[in-house]
Write a protein that binds this DNA or RNA. Structure first.
Lengths: 346, 346
DNA sequence: CTGTTAGCGCATTCAC
DNA sequence: GTGAATGCGCTAACAG
């Protein structure tokens, strides 16, 4: 019961034509909905034979002939083998896949460690109408990868990355992390927070930098007497975050607010405070960043900024489709707004 | 600065051959690593021209010629437009994409509402080496969709579905929900739970049925005097779950334990209990189902059964690759174990 | 409305 | 080692 071994030969357009007693061209016309050229009677006949022979069109042959693809490549450059398991990436891919599928395009996922991408042959073997790319890693490396993708001379949508690629055929798409930082900053300052502690992973991402810049903007706009300290943890893992905060607190007084560079960091920090009988939000306020709607009902209900990750993916798909239709991207950069979410921790 | 409009013509194998002053055949040999037929000198020359002309091989032409695909289709049949945003699905896709990418296969995602799939033409336009499918909806509908996919006469891996498709070229892959139910049951019974309340969505999925069956197994094995009540909520949404539980509690005493058919349901139930000053786990124990490792640090830390969703996807990729290599699936059904996770709620 | 011709880019076969 | 001829399945252009 482990499946049949022999594959039946697939029927071609010729087979259908012969069976329906028409020319291959007529079958092609039926397939492509050019019904003006086909009488209803022959059409029915052709369709019946298609069904009967279980005919499926070869997209390879078709795409070769019409020199056009109905597929977009999503390149995810990451060292971790579980890259796609990340909720943010996942949401982006979901939005992208949906936007493309609606237009009858397919999304081809392709994850690579950045080292593998260095051998240029890899991407030479994928034939798609355009690429979307989510690149992780240090800034310089990311720029190299982005440049390599641009060299493919195909439409390219970059997520969470600035497009410093000259006049390449590129659109950079990101969420408004700067604005998100301002929202968080204003929220805290309105609650008389004087000393903010921002916990980040040591590896600073551009998005995290923007969030911090937004906080600083907010402080400056309020007159600038609040202070902001950045505390880098070795990684964003639960243990590393707690270790960093623990060490910090040995030699420093409690801040008025802890700002996590993202939600998991904020949660790790908050649980450490809990363990030490520090009350949140009475003694210390805690806020996160890049929350997701789907997490709304888990607890603690963090005050955070909601990421429009799904919309980011959708927008990317739309931008790509528009580009393919019109010949150029309408905008070289797109920034999507984030939404402030009041939780129980401030 | 919105991108160049003109696409440079792509170089073909002929162009490279001409530039390197060799025949197209030689270029092809270089591309396919048949180095025994190419002298090192010409090889270098060819590779330099490939680089210089930014040549990329047409997979369409190649696949057409060799009648072979390097891509697997992932069909997700779901009414909701955000199908992929579901964490379980997402993890499965992540594992699948990684397994395939490692073997230099591409994953083509294709989401459809099940109604659209009824028109048979849709899938006739996708040319892949095999299909993986995740189908949602009522059991009968799912069976119809599965049958339609089997008709494609291509290797097929079905997630969370029994393969009642005769000797079709199919492999059914699922997690051990029955065993998971037993684990939960044993855990509760060991804590002297007499009355269990299982909250499910009204739309009962096969996986949920298996979980309940596992609970019953466990009760039977323990002598059978504990009772199990199933409470269907209109949906698995936060509000519907709370409404159902609330109504139930109007006319029934508190159970000893509430079992959510999945984690979000358990959390909704637990928060309702919290609101009513019912202590968890002292007064009522609460357990979930289908938790994910990534959620470990969010709170409440539910007692639950961890889903091997990522591994499910990986295993699917491996099974498919093995099938493509050997001509038949090694196993028609594969069940992956789940892992019990002790939280703070029991 | 329907049929014929030709070629998309590549790899296999067989010469050289 | 290398080159020339052939055809994979499909569709654009044109002829009936």
């Amino acid at each position: 019961m482990t499946g049949k071994v022999v594959r039946k030969e697939r029927a071609t357009i010729k087979d259908v034509a012969r069976a329906a007693e028409v020319s291959p061209m007529t079958v092609s016309n039926v397939l492509n909905g050019r019904l003006q050229f086909v009488s209803p009677a022959t059409r029915k006949r052709v369709e019946r034979e298609i069904e009967r022979l279980n005919y499926r069109r070869s997209t390879n042959a078709r795409n070769l002939r019409v020199a056009e693809q109905r597929s977009i490549g999503m390149v995810i450059v990451d060292e971790s083998p579980t890259f796609l398991a990340d909720f943010f990436t996942c949401q982006v891919v979901a939005g992208l896949a949906n936007a493309l599928n609606r237009a009858d395009y397919t999304l081809s996922i392709y994850g690579v460690p950045s080292a593998a991408l260095a051998q240029s042959m890899i991407l030479r073997n994928y034939e798609v109408a355009g690429f979307c790319a989510m690149i992780s890693g240090p800034a310089e490396e990311r720029a190299v990868v982005a440049r390599r993708l641009a060299e493919l001379e195909q439409p390219l949508v970059l997520f969470q990355q600035t497009a410093d690629l000259g006049d390449a055929d590129v659109c950079a798409l990101r969420q408004d992390d700067l604005g998100g930082g301002r929202l968080i900053g204003d929220h805290l300052l309105a609650r008389r927070v004087e000393r903010m502690l921002v916990v980040t992973p040591r590896q600073i991402w551009p998005a995290v930098e923007s969030r911090i810049a937004g906080l600083r903007d907010s402080i400056a706009a309020a007159g600038g007497h609040a202070t902001l300290t950045v505390l880098p943890a070795n990684s964003e893992s639960f243990a590393d975050v707690q270790a960093a905060l623990s060490t910090y607190l040995e030699t420093n007084p409690l801040p008025d607010a802890v700002v996590g560079a993202n939600d998991p960091i904020a949660i790790a920090a908050m649980l450490l405070l809990n363990d030490r009988a520090v009350r949140v939000p009475e003694d210390v306020r805690v806020v996160g960043f890049n929350g997701f709607d789907a997490h709304r009902y888990s607890r603690p209900h963090l005050t955070t900024v909601l990421s429009p990750a799904y919309e980011l993916g959708e927008k990317a798909g739309e931008a790509m489709l528009q580009r393919l239709k019109s010949g150029h991207f309408n905008a070289a950069e797109i920034t999507l707004p984030v939404v402030f979410e009041q939780g129980f921790t401030t």
